[in-house]
Structures are given as C-alpha cells and as structure tokens.
Design a protein around this nucleic acid. Structure first.
Lengths: 158, 158
DNA sequence: AGTATGTAGTGCGATACCGTATTGAAACAG
DNA sequence: CTGTTTCAATACGGTATCGCACTACATACT
C-alpha cells in the first residue's frame, strides 16, 4: 500500500485550527452581547454556578475551567464587585471559601441569554442544530482524552 | 409527538462549550511547547505566513485571524523583535507594509513542530485522527456561516 | 505539644489583548 | 491645486491572564 495514513498530524492541525477559530468567533459574538465590564470568562463562571454547581470553592472553579487559581480569584472579585456572586467563608475550613450566585446574578444571566437568543435563532436557520448533536459525543470524548493527557507532559515513544 | 425539537439553544450551548474547552486545552498544550516569549498567537501568525500566504499586509493578517488591527501590530512587532518576520514597506502604497517570514522564522517553526510531534503521536494512539477527519467539513461549514454572520449584527426574526 | 509538609486564597508584576484616538498617506471632488 | 474623505498602521490606556511569592490555615508525623 502506498500510504493510507494521510498524515494524522495534518488532520489534528486542521482540526484544532477549526476549533480555535470557532471558539474565537463564538467568544467574540458572546462578548458583543454582554454588557461592558463583564467578560466572557466571568459570564462562563456565572453560567457554571447555575448549570453545574453553586456554592463551590474558587479552587474547584479554577480546576473546572482549567485556569490558574489567580485568574479565578480575579474573575470572582469582579463578579462580586458587580454583586453577581457572593463569597462566603467555609466554616469547616478556614482556608477556603464558597462562591454563590446571587439573585442579581441569576437575573443577569437570564438577560444575557435573552440577548443571545436571536443569534442562536438566526444560526439555527442556517445550520440545523441536529447536525451538531451528532458531533457532541466525539468532541466530549476527545476533550476528556486531552484533559487526561494534560497531566502526562512527556510522551515517550511507545 | 411530545417534543422532537430538543432545544436547539441547548445543543448550540453545549457545542460551543465543548469547542471552547477544546480550544483552550489545545492552546495550553501548544503554549507549553513554545519557548518563553513567543505566544500562541504569534506562532499562529508564523504558521499562517508559511501555510497560507507570505508577504501579506498586517491588515490582511488581522482579518484572517479575526483580531483587531492593534493586536496584529503587536504580534508582528514581537515577531520582528525576535527576528522571525521582516516588515517591508509597500512601494506602491506608502500606508501599508508587507510581512515576510525570515529564515530564522522558518527554522523556529520547524523546531516548534518537532517539539509538538510527540504530543500528536500520543494523541493519535488514544484517538485516531480518522475520527476527526469526518467532522472537518462540518466544522468548516459552520465556521463559514459564523464568519458571514459576523457582519449581520441584528438578526430580526424571519 | 511541636514541627514539617501540604493546601486555599491573594498581592504583585509582566505580558497579551483590544478599544479609542492619532498620524500619515492615498483617492477623489471641486 | 486644495480640501475632504477613506484607509493602513500605530501610540496609548484599560482589562484579562498568569507565574511567582506570600500568608493563613490544616493535617501528618514525631
């Protein structure tokens, strides 16, 4: 056979290039819909508190988003300054804190989603969501693999 | 039927969430492999010069990457400071410049790709590239739609 | 108890990114 | 030729991100 392995490196490069562009485009779109002073990262944290878990510690949040602790500290500080989250001390562990979303935070999230809805609608008109649904498991699987690989920094040839 | 339209909004949210995480993970991985002082954005610009077009103007590059002109100016300045690109004035238009990759730039790119190859290999071992190849056209199509939508900021219901 | 080690959060400094305003040059109308 | 408009690039300022180092607290070990 001549070469039925068409350069996996090229495929991965192309894939990550597309993913990067898509992430940037969607991020820019979202950023455009958010009020000034709130960044996409901060919106994402707020979203996480509602959809995944409320009352987690800053470190848990940092791990969930794969960002350094210091970045999460900053995001939470901004959100707290805007009254969208509340930081409470952990009575059982004096080192840690809990992050709760406030009523204002939920209202903010609702408003942001409403502002985004027209975009989603015009997008579905051009690209049915069902075509994406099929890719979701594959993407999630790859994400988990990359996530696991994150802790294996030196891949020897095997 | 009860509801065969399972909230396109949810699907898009989940999709963009996965895409965002994947982009961040791959970006972090790449950043880890680059020498300090060179960011992923700068590497991407260098890559673009070799793979897509060399000798383009900063504005063309900014459009290609969907970033503000100022960001591209910054990236090019850093790359030029490292001797990886060369900026030449456009003799036909005094306002614009051309960005060329230098020999050092090509060598740098080669080294960066070599440093990244082990990651790709260990990834293919866990996730065959062929599974990604099938998704590429769909991703590219969605990317083009999002790109086109970028200039249609107010989607009325239709 | 007392010491050593580990962990959660943060202050600080450096860099990247991007919006705004400015500079310089080209294109065009009169 | 002159004034206006348009456009490329950049200077500047503000925010996000992150590495480093530090404090405070918790846990383990002797």
């Amino acid at each position: 056979m001549p070469d039925n392995r068409p350069a996996p490196e090229e495929i991965f490069n192309a894939f990550f290039l597309e993913v990067g562009i898509l992430a940037q485009l969607s991020r820019a779109r979202l950023s455009l819909r958010l009020p000034p002073g709130i960044s996409v990262s901060q919106f994402s944290v707020l979203n996480h508190l509602v959809r995944v878990r409320d009352g987690g510690t800053p470190l848990e949040l940092a791990r969930a988003f794969q960002v350094p602790k210091t970045s999460m500290t900053h995001s939470l500080t901004v959100l707290e300054r805007h009254g969208l989250v509340r930081l409470a001390p952990n009575p059982a562990d004096g080192r840690s804190k809990f992050a709760f979303i406030t009523a204002e935070g939920r209202a903010f999230l609702q408003a942001a989603r409403a502002a985004l809805a027209p975009d989603i609608r015009s997008l579905t008109a051009l690209f049915p969501a069902s075509r994406l649904a099929g890719m979701l498991p594959t993407l999630a699987e790859l994400r988990q693999i990359l996530d696991a690989l994150r802790d294996a920094p030196s891949p020897d040839q095997t």
